[in-house]
Amino acid sequence: MSALSLPRRDRATPLWSRALFGLLVQYRRTWRSSVEMNFIYPVLYLSAMGIGLGGLVNRHLAASHAAALGGVSYLAFIAPGILASSAMQISTQEGTWPILGRFKWERTYLAMAQTPLRAKDILTGQLAFVALRQLMTSAVFVVMMWAFGALTSPEALVALPVGVLVGLAFATPCIAFTATQETDAGFPTIHRLIVIPLFLFSGSFFPITQLPRPLQLLAMATPLYHGVALARAATLGHLATSASVGHAGYLLALALFGALVARRTFERRLVR
């Protein structure tokens, strides 16, 4: 073994990108099991609710001359809601069991921690991985939406970064929480008591103006409401409002806050 152990490079690749590489190699082996949740579920919801239920809704609204949905078909109304909701579902799914596995069962993070990677590099690589997957999923869904005829403007492309933003806004707090857990006991509760209610009451399937006022205010304090509103603004072509800035700002703030907490919990878990 020579004394010169590492080859000299002009510019070392960033530490976090090395962690990302490790996760991508893993993903190449396991991507098949995520296909259904990431791609098939949203399309099924879109078809069933957008077309099946949409038939009932469109007919009723036309007959009663109500403009509850702002003049678009039910399909076009719910599609951005499903985009944002599946970003949430993917993040909460990916941000729980797989993260715990990388700490405890496969111990991927531990292997990384033995190398020059620090806790914050590992976390950054993990978040980059989540963002990439969200980007892929959102892209596929936007194409689906276009195929279903649910897009009305080129601003709809902004739905891609919106999906990533919603995904990160949910992923970072989830990951921060998971890093403190020793078992998966809390995860089903997150799904049933947080994810499902948010999914149903954040304006994906009906405008939250239908809710009683106090519940409306509650909904507006939750992240998915802002994700849905922002995605809808993008796909229906009315992004250029101050409301959009507000929605984006909320999501960004949540994502950053979650990332900061996650950094602390990662460090505490990996460097004990």
Binding site: G22, V25, T115
Partner: peptide, 11 residues
């Protein structure tokens, strides 16, 4: 081995 090498930035 390949992934671990990458953590050390080995080309």
């Amino acid at each position: 081995l390949r992934v671990y090498a990458r953590y050390f930035d080995i080309p």
